[in-house]
Every structure is written in C-alpha cells, then in structure tokens.
C-alpha cells in the first residue's frame, strides 16, 4: 500500500472510513458505532432462578455448619465457640491445669501412672493420697524439688523406693502447674487448692542449700501450710 499524499489527507481518510471502506482487521468487518444487539424479550429462565434459590439455601446451610458462627476466634471449620471453649482452657487456673497435665504426663506418669494410682509397694498413689490432699502444698513442693527416698506410709500402705529430684529440670511455673494439677484433678477425685509459682520459688530459695532427697520423717516435721 503506497498511497499518494493527497488521498491520505485526514479529511479524505475520514470520508473513506465513514463510507464503510475502512480497513478491516485481518478479515474482521468494520465495526460501526452501534453497540451489539441485545434481546430484551427473553426473561431469565425460571429454573435458573429456582436453582439459584436452592443454591443460596445451600450456601446459608454451609456457612451455618462451617462458618463457626462468624466468630473470629473459631478457626476450625465445623466448630462453634462452645466446642472451642470446651477444648481450650479459658481462665488462668484452667491454663495452669492444662500445663500441669502436660508436665505430669512427661515427668510423673511413668511411676505414679497416668491414672495417678501408683504401683503397690513401690510408688505411692497421688490420686486420693493423704500426702497430696493436705491443706497446703508445702510438703509435696519440697518432694518435687528435691526428690524423696526411704519408706513412706500413704493411706495406711507402705511404700519404699526413690523419687528423683526435679529442681534443675522444672521451672517454678512447671512445678506449680503440676502440683495444682495433682491436687485439683477432679478425674481422680482430688479437690485440694492450687499452688502458685511464688510459693514454689519461696521454697526453692529456702531449700537452695539442700543437696539430698527428703525422707518421710523429715517432711512430717514441716508444717503443711505457712
């Protein structure tokens, strides 16, 4: 295409295009100004509207079942806030209990058993034990810190073995948690009050110079409560 300049003047080109002689694009016809035709007679088919209603219903059911009640705390599809609260502790005491359960399962349950009943003649029970359910936790905090050896009478039965000291392995909070868990574990029928990290720290500091395990005789000389 080698047009001579007069034929390519803007006015001539515009006239040519207006007459419908404009260049098509690779076989496409020229496009006039009017938008494409749209049929206005046909309505949206009824079955589509019906299906849309059904799917909207499905959507609400799906959201109801999997949306966690639109609560920002619920992350698992299919759960509600109530399920979440049943699974996760809410208060600080609940959190201490949950931590205590973890510590117990790792450090204590091998000897005292997961059900807290111990082993006859060797390891005394912690479930329903008169040593555990004292008014205050002073004695068992000491046992956990420094361990214990020699004969001991629990609920009228004799036991004789060695318990390891956990002073270096467990923090004040871990010991407070596990003592709270043992004393307050309702599954075992225990309902004694909690221990606090501050109590554990006080006893840890007071017995810092002690390097040997406790005996039952020594412990009976210590008041259960401050």
């Amino acid at each position: 295409m080698k047009p001579v300049s007069p034929a390519r003047s803007p006015a001539a080109a515009r006239a040519a295009r207006a007459a419908g002689n404009a260049t098509g694009a690779l076989g496409a016809p020229d496009l006039d100004w009017a938008p494409p035709a749209v049929g206005t007679g046909a309505t949206t088919p009824l079955w589509l509207v019906g299906l849309f209603g059904v799917m909207l219903y499905w959507a609400t059911m799906y959201l109801d079942r999997n949306g966690g009640g639109f609560n920002p705390l619920v992350f698992n599809q299919g759960e509600l806030l109530a399920d979440l609260e049943a699974r996760v502790p809410r208060s600080e005491a609940d959190a201490l209990l949950a931590q205590g359960r973890r510590v117990y399962n790792v450090y204590c349950s091998a000897c005292h058993q997961p059900n807290g009943r111990g082993t006859p003649n060797q390891f005394p029970p912690v479930a329903g034990s008169d040593w555990v359910l004292t008014e205050g936790p002073n004695r068992i905090i000491r046992i956990v810190l420094n361990g214990m050896q020699g004969p001991i009478t629990v609920n009228g039965n004799q036991y004789n073995n060695v318990m390891l000291p956990w002073r270096d392995q467990l923090s004040d909070e871990d010991i407070a948690a596990v003592v709270t868990f043992i004393r307050g574990n309702a599954e075992w029928g225990n309902n004694a009050g909690p221990a606090t990290p501050a109590q554990v720290k006080a006893i840890r500091d007071a017995t810092a110079s002690r390097s040997t395990s406790w005996t039952a005789q020594e412990l009976l000389g210590i008041p259960v409560k401050d």
């Binding site: 589509l48 849309f52 959507a59 799906y62 949306g67 619920v74 992350f75 599809q77």
Partner: peptide, 24 residues
C-alpha cells in the same frame, strides 16, 4: 490455613455461587 472458619467457608460459597455468572 490459620484463618477464622467463616473466611474459608465464605470463600467456598462465593466460588460456587459464581458459577451462576459463568452460566449466564
């Protein structure tokens, strides 16, 4: 992922209902 359940559920519902637009 660690997102509130409603976000993920709404996403599923949104993607499925967009099919109506696709059909149209």
């Amino acid at each position: 992922g660690p997102f509130p359940a409603w976000m993920l559920s709404l996403a599923v519902v949104g993607n499925v209902l967009t099919l109506f637009a696709v059909y149209a």
